[in-house]
Design a binder for these strands. Structure first.
Lengths: 233, 233
DNA sequence: GCTGTTTAGTGAACGCCGTTTACTTTCGCT
DNA sequence: AGCGAAAGTAAACGGCGTTCACTAAACAGC
């Protein structure tokens, strides 16, 4: 009662409604068509009133990004946990990757918002990703973790094609992770990202109507590179 | 004189100036900040006057896309041709890929426009890519060509991880290229695109400040997969 | 229960945008 | 010289984000 007064509850409900309508606009017309005036119109309010809840449109969009990262991360975690606690890290990675792709294609405008170029005013969002509390960092972390487990088990493929010395010099935060893990992770991640982004952004419209075979090929290739592990840890 | 009257020349000069200013705005503020009114203001004109040259803002942006594709393609072709006519297809591909990356990082807003998600109203641009005259298709073609040469020489790496049957069913235009070539091309292309797009869009801000080692690693990996060819054709 | 304060919401305005319409000027050609 | 096409203008419409002064309602403390 003291923690959540009546005022606060109705306020949170209003904030939720704003974000709900914002997302509906995002889905309907892409990142650029999220507008305070349209939200206010649908809520039967004045646009100025929304400034009691968000300092600017940018802030609303950034919150939307955070929510979306949390949503896709939760879906990936669910798929991962459905495999059971003793599942092979490789299988966990594959399940998460497929879930990520499924979410992105089922929610193209949302995926475009968080995986595409930053909308003006949202650049800072990506820049704050170094913060571990950041939703984007949390999302990335669930993919890093199984990779670390593979490394600890000595199963990580070698990153022989990556110049580790130069890569080490290009990292913002040194030493948190072994450079080999970083190299393999980044290589694998950008490959998946490439297939996904290319399809999301229509860059493959001239070449393929469905990129699932390409995505699966990257997954298969990654799995084939990992050294086989014992039956259970 | 008859082909290009005085009227036409001054008109082309005006069109060029409009596109020049549009690009300057693109560079300064990203794709969303290209505005007819601002262009007109800088030209000492009324916004309505610009409609004598472009039917809408979208059309101007699409023309800008075409110009940018032509520009980056020309740079890649120059780098390719600098290798001489007898250069190995692999070397030509590597040179073009590096040139592409160099151009993209030197012209980030422009690269974001053509390699990122379509700006609202420009979706049709990507959709028209099936037309071989399309600037985007021409750009892609210069990367396809050496790949075909490798295939003809029997040097193409096998695409064993790609389900060729399913991929064949996901192509818009069947049979123009052997499916193996398509598979290798798309896999290689999306890998490069992944590294490039991830850096362009700030998706790797938390992980790396410079993706050149990753890009070079993909190039090295590709080169290592291609079977060695004779000294000269 | 009244009073003072915080909060939510309004209305009008400012300046930006794309686009359309009707009108005027200017240029080129016969 | 005069006619027709092309280029450009002015004004308007509706949309946008944002600010500011103001009102109405809910809350707090006495």
């Amino acid at each position: 009662m003291s923690d959540t007064s009546h005022r606060e509850r109705v306020r949170e409900r209003t904030v939720a409604e704003i974000k709900e309508l914002a997302r509906r606009q995002l889905v309907a017309g892409g990142p650029a068509s999220v507008s305070l005036r349209a939200i206010a119109r649908e809520m039967g309010m004045t646009a100025a009133a929304l400034y009691r809840y968000f300092p600017a449109l940018d802030a609303l969009v950034i919150e939307l990004c955070t929510d979306l990262y949390d949503e896709v991360r939760a879906e990936c975690e669910t798929a991962r946990d459905a495999l059971g606690p003793a599942a092979d890290p490789v299988d966990r990675l594959l399940a998460m990757a497929r879930t990520l792709r499924g979410w992105a294609l089922a929610h193209r405008p949302e995926a475009t918002l968080i995986f595409g170029p930053p909308v003006p005013g949202v650049e800072q969002f990506h820049e704050q990703c170094l913060d571990l509390e950041h939703a984007g960092a949390c999302f990335g972390a669930i993919f890093v973790q199984p990779m670390v487990e593979l490394w600890e088990a000595g199963r990580l493929p070698d990153a022989s094609h990556v110049d580790l010395t130069r890569l080490a010099g290009a990292l913002p935060s040194q030493g948190e992770l072994p450079i080999e893990v970083t190299a393999v992770f980044l290589t694998s991640w950008t490959r998946l990202y490439g297939v996904l982004a290319a399809e999301l952004f229509g860059q493959l419209a001239w070449a393929a109507t469905n990129t699932e075979p390409l995505f699966e090929a990257e997954l298969a290739f990654f799995a084939s590179q990992v050294k086989p592990g014992g039956a259970a840890g």
